[in-house]
Design a protein around this nucleic acid. Sequence first.
DNA 1: AAGATCACTTGATATTTATCAAGCCGGCAG
DNA 2: CTGCCGGCTTGATAAATATCAAGTGATCTT
Lengths: 232, 232
Amino acid sequence: MTESYYPDVRALHLFSEMADEHFEALMRVSYVQTFPPQIEMITEGDSSDFLHIVLSGAVEQFCTWNGRETIMSTIRPISTFILAATIKDAPYLMSARTLEKSRIALIPSQDVRAVFDADGQFARAIVTELAQCYRSVVKAQKDIKLRTSLERLANYLLRQQRYSGGGQGFDLPIEKRRLALLLGMTPENLSRAFKALQAYGVTVDGAGVHIRDREDLERFAKPSALIDDYSS
Amino acid sequence: MTESYYPDVRALHLFSEMADEHFEALMRVSYVQTFPPQIEMITEGDSSDFLHIVLSGAVEQFCTWNGRETIMSTIRPISTFILAATIKDAPYLMSARTLEKSRIALIPSQDVRAVFDADGQFARAIVTELAQCYRSVVKAQKDIKLRTSLERLANYLLRQQRYSGGGQGFDLPIEKRRLALLLGMTPENLSRAFKALQAYGVTVDGAGVHIRDREDLERFAKPSALIDDYSS
DNA sequence: AAGATCACTTGATATTTATCAAGCCGGCAG
DNA sequence: CTGCCGGCTTGATAAATATCAAGTGATCTT
């Protein structure tokens, strides 16, 4: 197995500041696996033996209960996931499946915990990352408890537009039926919600979205830094 | 100001393992303040200058957007809050108000961060605490995205029953109008939901709740360790 | 003790969201 | 090329949830 992914992992804020020897130690015990699309890599309730890093492809975290399913987040390269379960040595709260063919690096959880104790910089980075994850879920919680589905979609589109460079037109990064579950609604209602947003200058053609006048949409969506700004 | 609260704070998992000198250093720069009921101590968006610890009384975290309000959690002694904002040195995502007259200890955020770098045990404890907080929000998110309001109430009652000793009767720890917002519904619908749960042996008189047959209610509520077990 | 206030409840109604059942359409396999 | 399949859409309907408007009962205040 090639070591070509080391620099990419090293560049992650989680690993960028730690001592070389500790980074090397982690990389030596980790390995890379390639998964085909639509494979459930992690099932909620299982014990967390590895910290996962998405090197290429895409992974989604989802949860099920009583026959229902919802999507919690989509993870794209290069990022880690299930850090909290790894740290706490507790069962996964979310399942994960590949959306596309994906390369995943796996670092044994016990080694992550060991290096945490030995490397202060790494410990600092883990805490920052965890705090970031925590704040992201709090924002998601505010989004769903304070907004209607139409408002959630409008704000999602505004975030996505910004993320994709700020131009009027951009492509949805995931299928609509998945976006619906991510936003806490059904695919049918997502369809209707897109139509309802035409009144605010939003047009859709397949995965392509066009926002005629951002300010017009913002007047309806009322985006807030404390919900929609994923960088803080 | 008395130092009588030191042992209580020291007993928190967050502070129990750290070196004496570091604990003393934190306590020296911290102070205690007593707030009357219904005081907004923290407003979302403000910068996070202190880590807060509820010594007595009760505090609730809530969020607002576009004229709407929701409650995120209730914090009772002895526990910390807004740890993530303190660590990241980022704005608060949630506001906080006292429910009763409360004594709050305040530790300057910069000192928390400094001791974090100096004390590995403390760093470890912070990470564990943060991971716990993260997992709690994920569970809350699953609760609200996968369940109807009636199911959320049923599971809340089962959790509360267990928490209060497991007997058939127990008292709601917060007002019903607050419970409604915590569960993501209106007070009116909470009232109706209680009535609907009569069909499963739940009776309510004021703050008192009686569950005739736990198993009967569980058949409807379908509690899951991955949503309702707050200890893992 | 009388009046005011507030949490809670109830009923009627409106809105939001989900479900069910087709139908459309583009990609893909045979 | 043709037919099938899956994602998407649409319409009709049902269920869940919110809103509005009273009304009740307890507590607090004066």
